[in-house]
Design a binder for these strands. Structure first.
Lengths: 352, 352
DNA sequence: TTGTATGCGTTATCAA
DNA sequence: TTGATAACGCATACAA
């Protein structure tokens, strides 16, 4: 009787091919196979072919476990976020998860409690437990200088997603919120709208500022003068946006189009418009931001800005590899292309 | 110059203690340390103490990598799902991710394209790539016999979350949809409601049937006769529910309460009620199901049923360990407790 | 009750 | 351009 009782079970003939199997079949050494996998340059075309054929024949895939064991660097990537149920975070979560999967990496997550004064300890515990040495930082924590310092001290390298400002030694990945906002306003203008309002997000988020700037820039460039009463703050929350919408639509000269800083709030605008007897988009055009699930569950479906979640996540995961490889400390910022999703909630301006 | 350029970088004195370090400090063999970690029984109290103290002093944590390498079984758990943006899946994703994190396991995911006729190949590729030997199956794919057969053939063990029916050789984890529905109806009855309608989900999901059954059972037990016109199908979709709500509220004798099979549809009901000039909950009580984000973003916040996501995920992840340990083939079904979240969308029946 | 030696799959050193 | 072999940290057969 063995001690623990869980001896080797996998003995079913369906075992995976190892590097040794490949080497044998190809008639070369394991090191050569290793070289092929790692794109070593000085390999004769002949052996390269042999090895590649053997790998294909055996349907070989390297064991990331053994690789980790040998190289010492963890394949795990850490991510800490606040509210997992926000549409933004849900999309980002999936995208990052998928990117990790595709890159044969693993994701370790921790729920971050902003109200917890002891959050630094929570992060340290997370690092101890998971042993991650690479992290993805998302808004709004990605802007915490304290967090940056903690991670630097622990020699954890990190990449920032949509930070307020770049951080020395870390690369950032983002989309161009301002440009996207300008494009959305131009979409309105192209439909003949002139009275265009904006419901802004939470003042603590940079995205709020950028989106508002884009809104203002586009109007100015089109020669449409800004009206103070056309900009209100909904703090990214559905319920505040209900009031904002009511306020805007009760103006003496109500807008014919509203550019809303996120989809949740845009949904609230549609809801309020309906309640007030306005049809969307015939009487009022509404556009959101983020392309979160809600944008396609409500009716009419929301015109919105699609963040390039998949690309952002992929870039984030890949950047970790580059960092490891080159061990560099440049702080480059990568801007990825968004998409304007024109759907049913925007239409021609009503004939006044 | 070394070949690949990425030599040992980690040389910063911040290295982790290994089992050997612990053994040396404790003055015992590595095997003994190993025994301590794995709760081997026959160890003298004295050596036990010594080892434990050494582990504490070195802040030792075993390397899961090396352990995987040695035991052969992967710490990765696979999960395949369809729509990542559904509220249900978003919550489940986070819960599973967190459970994996806590259990020092890793999650590998794949987006499942139901329209892809070649899905079997997609799954096989996923298995090859990730080498997972444990999977979590979620609705609705968890009911696919083809998938079960494929995984069994590949010797991948799996656990089912909320399946239609148990599967031999796999354990299932679920909540009691029927009971929860009965409780919600009883909540309505307790508030004095007698005219209670139901908007059902998509006919392909078991949850739809179970929730409807619970609705009917509770009414019958309370001696309230069922009305055919009070049950309509919204197929879990917001936009269908808009029509359902309008239909129900236009009846000669409209309901004073509506039990809706998910939160998205419940949101649509609230929206429609508002449009028709009905106040929630003064004129109409509305309850949803799932406790998805939308239930707390709309106003009034939705009374709903909270699935025990965290517990379900934890149980799923833990069950994999049990399976590995005992290599058993029982198909047990674990039912976890839900929570009825009473919020602002339900209130006393209006005095008729 | 405890210790020694071996191997898991990969990459790195050094030699050919 | 290639190959033999050690080493990563851990768990186990076998020995004591």
């Amino acid at each position: 009787m063995s001690e623990s009782g869980n001896g080797r079970i996998e003995d079913t003939g369906f075992s995976m091919a190892t590097i040794t199997d490949v080497a044998e079949l190809a008639g070369v050494s394991v090191k050569t196979v290793s070289r092929v996998m790692n794109n070593y340059e000085h390999i004769s075309t002949k052996t390269l072919k042999k090895v590649e054929r053997a790998m294909a024949e055996l349907n070989y895939a390297p064991s990331s476990i053994a690789r980790q064991m040998r190289t010492g660097d963890s394949l795990s990537i850490g991510m800490i976020y606040g509210d997992p149920s926000s549409g933004y975070q849900a999309r980002l979560n999936h995208a990052v998860l998928k990117a990790c999967s595709d890159a044969r990496r693993y994701l370790a997550v921790e729920l971050f409690d902003e109200k917890n004064a002891d959050w630094q300890k929570q992060v340290e515990d997370f690092l101890d437990r998971t042993k991650v040495t690479n992290m993805i930082l998302v808004p709004p924590m990605c802007d915490s200088t304290d967090l940056h310092e903690l991670l630097t001290r622990r020699q954890v390298s990190f990449v920032l997603i949509s930070p307020s400002r770049p951080v020395p030694g870390a690369s950032s990945i983002a989309m161009d919120d301002r440009k996207a906002s300008r494009e959305m306003i131009n979409h309105f203008i192209g439909l003949g709208h002139k009275k265009i309002a904006h419901i802004a997000g939470h003042p603590d988020h940079v995205a709020t500022l950028l989106r508002r700037q884009g809104y203002e820039e586009a109007l100015q460039r089109a020669g449409i003068s800004l009206r103070e009463e056309y900009v209100v703050s909904g703090r990214f929350r559905f319920r505040y946006a209900l009031e904002c919408a009511e306020q805007l639509l009760s103006l003496d000269e109500p807008p014919t189009a509203i550019f809303v800083a996120n989809d949740e709030m845009a949904a609230a605008v549609v809801m309020t418009a309906n309640r007030l007897g306005l049809r969307v988009p015939e009487d009022l055009s509404v556009a959101g931001f983020d392309n979160t699930p809600i944008s396609q569950t409500i009716w009419p479906e929301l015109t919105t800005v699609a963040q390039p979640f998949a690309e952002i996540a992929k870039a984030a995961v890949e950047s970790m590899r580059t960092m490891k490889r080159t061990n560099n400390s440049v702080s480059e910022t990568l801007i990825l292309e968004h998409n304007i999703m024109i759907r049913a909630s925007t239409g021609p301006a009503p004939k006044a």
